[in-house]
């Protein structure tokens, strides 16, 4: 564990907690993409199957359980909670997220380190996580006026990605065999998807204005 990975994990945790808090306390999921949340639930469910097969640390297991629990809770709130579900922007959140799942699965079947069930699913989760934010970014662009919490959620998620890149550079320099092309390229693609959002986020922050994305 290094400081960059810890900072990345903490911003990731904060992003999820901000979103859960928003949904739980103000009973609204306006501006939140259910498609993205479902994709994250799939990402965690396929990546963390190894809690049954390998143990790394209490920290690792605990965080996995938190991410699994929170992502499925958010999906549950948005789909089934009687107040929250009515605030969901169903008409705007039209991204065909299943069209992301299939190509990622095919890619994982073609490009992986080992052809085993767990390894292919783990690789699939990396590819899917890279593109899972797309429905959320499209929804933000469509609704344009973004409340602070939704903006902070995406900002914190982007921060998590940035710290993970620093973590990989650090590990590459300090651990002799740390070379993981699949993880790095998927992670880099994911981080680049946030670049446009970050540009407008900082513009609005600099001008002390409410975040607005161009149509």
């Amino acid at each position: 564990m290094n400081i960059f990975r810890l900072a990345g994990d903490m911003t990731h945790l904060a992003s999820v907690l901000v979103l859960l808090l928003k949904i739980h306390t103000i009973k609204s999921c306006a501006g939140v993409s259910l498609k993205t949340q479902e994709l994250y639930a799939i990402v965690f469910a396929t990546r963390y199957l190894d809690i049954f097969t390998s143990f790394y640390s209490i920290y690792n297991t605990l965080m996995k359980l938190i991410f699994l629990g929170s992502s499925f809770s958010i999906v549950w709130y948005m789909r089934y909670h009687k107040t929250v579900r009515r605030t969901y922007d169903r008409e705007q959140d039209t991204f065909r997220h299943w069209f992301l799942v299939l190509p990622c699965l095919l890619l994982a079947l073609l490009i992986h380190e080992k052809f085993t069930f767990l390894e292919v699913l783990w690789t699939f989760s990396l590819y899917l996580e890279a593109v899972a934010i797309l429905p959320q970014l499209v929804l933000l662009q469509r609704t344009r006026n973004i409340d602070n919490l939704t903006g902070q959620y995406v900002f914190l998620l982007g921060g998590y990605r940035g710290f993970y890149i620093l973590n990989w550079i650090y590990r590459y320099l300090t651990e002799p065999h740390f070379v993981h092309w699949i993880t790095w390229i998927a992670g880099l693609v994911q981080t680049l998807l946030y670049a446009d959002f970050f540009y407008y986020y900082f513009q609005s922050w600099k001008n002390n204005k409410k975040l607005q994305l161009p149509a």
């Binding site: 990975r5 994990d9 990731h12 190894d50 390998s54 790394y56 640390s57 690792n60 965080m63 996995k64 991410f67 380190e113 783990w122 993970y164 973590n167 651990e175 065999h177 740390f178 070379v179 993981h180 092309w181 993880t183």
Partner: peptide, 10 residues
């Protein structure tokens, strides 16, 4: 050669 060390990440 890649080892499984990246799996300790989240």
């Amino acid at each position: 050669v890649a080892r499984d060390d990246v799996k300790d990440e989240l």
